[in-house]
Amino acid sequence: MRTMKLTLHIWRQENRNAQGRMETYLLDGVNEHMSFLEMLDVLNEKLIKEGKDPVAFDHDCREGICGSCGMVINGRAHGPWYRTTTCQLHMREFKDGDEIYIEPFRAAAFPVIKDLVVDRSAFDRIIQAGGYISVNTGGVPDANTIRIGKETAEQAFAAATCIGCGACVATCKNASAMLFVSAKIAHLGLLPQGQPERMQRVLNMIAQMDKEGFGNCTNTGACEVECPKGISLVNIARMNSDFLMAQLK
């Protein structure tokens, strides 16, 4: 088993209104089998023992499906691994003596609450604006009464795998939320249950997205690269054409 000594540069900020700064910590004995979050747990235990304030960071399931964790590691949302959330990034990626920069997701619409924790409730408000269907679609067996082609089901499912972590916003040079919003719009827009409200949904969700102060997509594709679930840019094309349809109707 390999252990390593790391130099960590971490963004520390007491609260929403405080002035933040990067602080440096030395951490010895980091096990290569630790996840990135476990490494931070070890750092926090050390800080607590020293009577210092531990580093605040978001986490929940720690198995890559909840979308809670998220930080920018050496300039990459969720770190350097492809299609991986921060909790699934493991320390074997790093080597002894490495310096690691850990920063919160940066966007005007994601204000820092403390250290690495950002307020992502803007995403909740976008979902509340239209990321659902208003009718009851019944229990599980009823789902099979509406037949959906394999390809459509797969496309809708691929869009539905978005965990709403916000890595797309964090990595986009414009802090645009269009990959997230388009995944939600496409997921419902591809299915028959989503059709009656399809146009209204696009208008409502885009209006809320704009209100939250996210930037505009410039089709660089950076979001698709960093998305831990591999949400495709094709969803943005779907959203754009639905918006155009809503205009023409």
Binding site: M22, E103, R106, A107, N174, A175, F214, N216, V225
Partner: peptide, 23 residues
Amino acid sequence: QNRNARPQGYVFQANDGKTSIFS
């Protein structure tokens, strides 16, 4: 608008190596 959407940038600048540079 895009500038205002990220008033504070990242300390560590990285490239994912996959996105088009010109974009």
